[in-house]
Design a protein around this nucleic acid. Sequence first.
RNA 1: GCUCGGGUGGUGGAAUUGGUAGACACGUUGGACUUAAAAUCCAAUGACCAUUGCGGUCGUGCGGGUUCAAGUCCCGCCCCGAGUACCA
Length: 938
Amino acid sequence: MSVYNFRLIEKKWQEYWSKNNTFKVEVDSSKPKFYVLDMFPYPSGAGLHVGHPISYIASDIYARYKRHKGFNVLHPQGYDSFGLPTEQYAILTGQHPEKTTKININRYRNQLDKMGFSYDWSREIRTSDTDYYKWTQWMFILLFNSCYDLNLDRAVNINKLVKIFKNQGNENINFYCEENILKFTSKDWDSFSKQKKEEILQKYRLAFISYTEVNWCEKLGTVLANDEIVNGVSERGGFEVTKKKMEQWSIRIGAYAERLLSGLKKIEWSDSIKDIQKNWIGKSTGYSLSFKIYNSKSELQVYTTRPDTIFGVSFLAVSPDHELISQLTIDKYKKNVDSFVKSFKLKSERDILTKINNSSGIFTGSYAIHPLTGNKIQIWIADYVLSSYGYGAVMCVPCGDERDFKFAKKYKINIINIFKNINISTKPHTEKIYDELINSDFLNGLNYEEANQKIGLKLEKNNIGFKNVKYKIRDSVFSRQRYWGEPIPIYFKNGIPHSLKKDDLPLKLPVIKNFLPTPEGNPPLGNAKIWAWDEKKRIVVDKKYIDNINIFPLELSTMPGWAGSSWYFNRYMDPKNKLNFVGSRELNYWKEVDLYIGGIEHASGHLLYSRFWQKFLYDFNLVPTDEYAKKLVNQGMILGNSAFIFRTSKSNTYISKNLVNDNQYERVRVDISLVNENDELDIEKLKKWLPEFKDANFKLENGKYIVAREIEKMSKSKFNVINPDDICKKYGADTLRLYEMFLGPIEQSKPWSMSSISGVHNFLKKTWKLFHLRDNFEISKNDPSVNSLKSLNKAIKKVNEDIQKLSFNTCISSLMICVNELLDQKCNSLVILKPLLILISPFAPHFSEELWSLIGSKSTIANEKFPDHDDSYLIELTKNYPISFNGKLRFKKELSMDLSNESIEKIIMSDKKTNFYLNGQKPKKIIIIKGKIINIVV
RNA sequence: GCUCGGGUGGUGGAAUUGGUAGACACGUUGGACUUAAAAUCCAAUGACCAUUGCGGUCGUGCGGGUUCAAGUCCCGCCCCGAGUACCA
């Protein structure tokens, strides 16, 4: 009896690969390059589950395929070892993050090696290594010392701006800045204090510090970026997030909004991810208008995308933290306004979410003048107006906007209808489609397009407003009040931030005992004794010397998780370089990632930040392309099948699923290893699992305890994790790899189920059998039959196409068909053996390489050439197609002609290269169904 | 609410982009081998009707339409998933 002994095979080749560095690559200009990248994992404590490798398997198949195709393939792996998840795990287990990181990485590596990936491990990187984060810090300094020149549309050194200020003040400058800065001359600039100068420069720096409102998460003890908050709570842990004003570092990603948007056109990323990024950037084109305030010299700026509705404006609204509030509020209303503003500031992120569509506000007592009608209109403070978008003030058109409508109804403000034949008594008309405007002076009678154009011209002509583009994307908060991250290389001299220099780096994370965050937001680095900067000696020294003349406090917060992951793909090209973040020879050879595979959950986080970061580096000629990944594929998640048992309230009795008839039960998660595939619970195992179940009682149905199931995200805390190690042990790595690819399309999420794993395992066994008789390698020496070659060439063609499309499930299907057909024909010849092995090898690397060695090939399969299919075997099929013609021929349109059976046969025989003409035209397509000609398309 | 995806057998999923729907695999049923089990192999397997045979009808969420031909295109609904959320 023959045995497919995957254990022996896999062990042998894993050892061979690591001993021989089989997958090590170097720059080789004689070969075309190809760069296949996985999103590197966070080494969290839970280890890998079967969901993780799905993308690694896909990328590994592609990398192996490309090697066969003659490419020099860069396929590296590393660890995103800084950041919240690692630190949370460290805190949870009471160990230092440095230690847990090492342990976790070893565990990951062990698991990865078992699955036979073809990574070049000599290029491994860890974001928490000083040799790595030195460069992250260096890039931060570069951001700090840069501003965005809108004329050149790129980042430039801040000194350029300083020079301009010195020579001509800030009149007529075109640098990216969201705030209005008072005009000053070159003389003014010279007279400004250092502090004042820096205050102005901070508005332009791409990395800057400011006292701003941030998302504060008390439980995590840190601020969070917008993309780290989901449904009003923290993404990690699901804790409450509130607003808090704090001194923070931020990155001016908004300067790159337009380029981040337009760059999407040149990359092959999925539409869904492009949509998410487009939404996140949120470009809109509208008009900035200024409303004069009645009895005042001030003006109120608003932004609108609907200038056509300007005659429907019946009030203005400003956000509760608008800078003009104190000026606008008249004494009579002051008390009420103050208390309204105060209560608004106490609201948490989640409060605001639940208050949507139930907005409230208060009248300031002052009025603005409508720029076209001259009417007096009320100015309100409304909590639905966002301070961070536009000018924090809006013109309100109740007849055309849902929020304005509700607000006007609630506070009984006048509603003007400007749409002819549209009833707005119960709901506003929010669409841009209407027949005619009314009550709109010179816009009366016009539709949307006409009105929009006419009002635009008028606004600009009368200097009321100007066309303006706005983006939703906000500055990204860059400080984390956490320990386990890159220290921000900044020290403060008289309150002014100064960056370290390149030679000062790395600024090493100090070793401290107490690295827990504090609820007040004091960063753990505040606990470090040796954490002050000696400007003269350029070293870190004890804080007690801070009163000395050259010694200054260092920044206490660290960088967020996305800092290190925003440029790691460049470091893989040259990971050991001491002089530069990557060498120019390597950079010019590898250039960019050709295929990037990873989860879609990073769409508005890592995948956006890294594009920004790359563009920034590109602006300084540090990288050759401004988009780092040509093609991106998002793999779907593998979901777990959690199990629940039911506890009667306040007792220790558990009752079987179908006996539960009311809500008097608590659902309790149990580990899925305690449950078999028929949902029966192993009660004895459960009792040993956790002490709380030791003395539990159970109510059974038909002598069994049946659990409830639920499909959800795979996670250790949900006790629904399947460990790939267990599957490797039972079926082998090749079966696991094949199976994960066979489950369905790579992009799709799917629940894990073991039910059909025997199918792919059988396929491997059959392939083995194709070349073995009993335990001995044995193949026929006969020439292959035509049918065998047909099957083989069909498979070669399909496999080629499918791998390129990353359609691995259909690819495996065609391999299964091929092997089945070859088994039937019992024609196992060397001629077909070679190409078949290469076909299978990207999926089952150990298995086929074992066969290579058996047939005596000296080379490893990595060097074999992927076969091309031979068309002549495929055309054969067409020739044998049964042809008969009876009945009427029907043609499209006026075409008609008589065809005999014979002439049709001719058409078919000559295939697409036919010389047959129909009414002087060459047929595009001849449709034959069940041997009958249905139609000829010309 | 808005913006994207997507609804195909008992299950996971195919379908050359408008051309024989259900490939491939799981599961199920029957059979062979076996003292027996496992393993392996063979056959059947969308539903319904007809079965001695041939065969027939209906079938890709629902309702219409275009076409010789629709899972695929168009119009109107229903449901599921993802992203986003007072963005003026």
